[in-house]
Design a protein around this nucleic acid. Sequence first.
DNA 1: CCCTTATTAAGTTCATAGAACATACTATTC
DNA 2: GAATAGTATGTTCTATGAACTTAATAAGGG
Lengths: 390, 390
Amino acid sequence: MGIQQFSFNAAETASNKTPRKINRNLVFNLIRTQQPISRADLARVCGLRRSTISLIVEDLIASGWIVEGSLGQLPRGRRPTFLELNSRRAIIALDIHPAQTTIAVADLAGRIIAQQVIDVPQEANKALTAIVAAIRKILATHKERTFDGIGICLPGRTDPHLQKLIFAPNLKWPVLSLKSKMEKATGLRVEMDNVANACVLSEVWFGASDGMHDIVVVNVSEGIGTGIFANGRLLRGESGLAGEFGHVQLQPDGPLCACGNYGCWEVLASNRAGVRYYNETAAVPVASFDQLLRLGQNGDQLATDALKKMAKHLGAGMRMITAALAPREIVVVGDITTAWHMFGSIVLDEMKKHSLSKPPILRPAYDGNAARLRSAVALVFSEGSAWTEQ
Amino acid sequence: MGIQQFSFNAAETASNKTPRKINRNLVFNLIRTQQPISRADLARVCGLRRSTISLIVEDLIASGWIVEGSLGQLPRGRRPTFLELNSRRAIIALDIHPAQTTIAVADLAGRIIAQQVIDVPQEANKALTAIVAAIRKILATHKERTFDGIGICLPGRTDPHLQKLIFAPNLKWPVLSLKSKMEKATGLRVEMDNVANACVLSEVWFGASDGMHDIVVVNVSEGIGTGIFANGRLLRGESGLAGEFGHVQLQPDGPLCACGNYGCWEVLASNRAGVRYYNETAAVPVASFDQLLRLGQNGDQLATDALKKMAKHLGAGMRMITAALAPREIVVVGDITTAWHMFGSIVLDEMKKHSLSKPPILRPAYDGNAARLRSAVALVFSEGSAWTEQ
DNA sequence: CCCTTATTAAGTTCATAGAACATACTATTC
DNA sequence: GAATAGTATGTTCTATGAACTTAATAAGGG
């Protein structure tokens, strides 16, 4: 199965520089994921000759992506020179959330170097100003690093072509040329995407996924968003709105959803649904999902019941995803994962019910907290393919 | 957006022969889709230099994929030599159906050269024998052609790795090494896939789709199967069972489905559902969907109502697909398309209801009848990339 | 114990071959 | 003569294979 079965597109001719592009990409990714690693090991792992590897490595060092590090130990023979990512290169990661926005500095390996919560006003333009100010401050205090771009993950959808924010109901932001405005204001490249999509990239870049199998990330929050990784890429859809499984109607006589339909998955299984289930039965209502979760973890019966109901509906949605895409893994992101030992099995059981195929692996994101910030790194480097240029 | 953002896989290094592979592929596909076409036009269309095109064309002629044809007309200057697919190369196309199996000879351009319905016994091994006999007969009567393989589309799912038939309830066939058995019996390469998947490939190879956008094919028959084309490839899923949207539960209190769940899309919207709707209301039941369709087209009110109900549920499922994948187009295959002028708009309206994004283009397959047979050609040449070898 | 030599592995150098390309050329037609 | 199709040739970029250099340890001899 070749890489590009269907590339009969005029734009994609290959020149004699094409092999280098491909191999450079390959070698860089090997160093990124296997660092520290020597030239000789690179050759063994990927099958290119040592001489070829040397040339490519020289190129990557010259352009500042990697550096030579310490020497390795061997029982005999010349000691290998380890290659590592250049830790002076960094990106700015932004995790925009209705309740709380976090800004961070991360290096190419996804290590979070600095991190802080910032105050962001509700109104879109004021928010933009506040964010740009925070970015300028970061740039000023981290002069020793080279910044390659800004990665933003947010609870909304972006147009894949125009790179505009097109759908962010939870932020109450209108359609917005966020990307170009930020790029003008900061001079840095900006990549932004939905939380679920960003977490998909994070899983593929830093997580257990190898980029060769399909995975689906389900972000359970106020709503439910999913990100789909298929055929070696993020699946964005024509409009950028692929992955809105949250708005599939699973119960035609269910509660009204914000989208206008009744009984969408996210009305049945989101954090809000959990809270609603609890408040329907309890004498004293809870105000937030956090509260509900704490009650449940402390053994409150009504809270547990509400969360179990939510978990069951989550599982029903995962069954839908399994039928639709048969991915290798479904990865869950969101507050509910902190109580996965209590509710994970309920989700799993419901998902497996009458499944046609071997059900996918179901698991929480490998690194719930940092995942969203890390995903910003993945966004900048997977979307823009920054190291491919020149 | 490069071809291969995530190819950090050891197997996929590029050598200095890689550009030729890519460009040869590209040129061949241009000839395939734009034939007849001259070398000069190829150069203009794809951007490669005339000298490069000449070399690649020479190669393709030498290996028998294309031939030089007639000369074109121009107002002045040397007349261009048209290049065409070698019409002596052909494949055998098999459309296996519970009711009726068709065998055909098709050339690279998807032209059906000969076609005949064959008798196939129910039992799997006897069926295999009958099919192999029919193939041998075809091979004997078409000695003037070179056959590159056998493409099979069938109402079942195949394992993408092992190439076994793993799920064919409507055929009542067990898990079966169909591919390897047929290859041994005929000496030809065999590619097989689900009807919906095959039709996806057919759309991309011979239809309006350009291979650059996502499309979903919905095959409405006894059940409902869908094929997904995303990120430039068919989406098969881990198990080969991706696209089973037909078994997503859209109405938890709906009728029992063969899969064990209640209210799956296919129980609500397949041909069988249409028949069921009619028979619930009519005094005299119909035995087949064909009958129902004829009644409806003749203006029978109860039949029309039943078909409208079915159409509405079809639309609800398309809304699900839109939310899940946001494809550019949804293409419908199946008997219902013969009455698309009557029911298409009902499907469309239901699909659009409360849609978050611009809804996809909804249309019947561009060539309902030949599509399934043609898809066999697409199967052989897209999956095996036959012209890439050597 | 020290020095020399062999062995092993890492990394580099260089001639070679495949491929696209730019340029110049030939062929054909009006 | 002008325009267009198609071909031939030298150049450049690339991966490769073989030979080479570098650096470390092991073995052996004095």
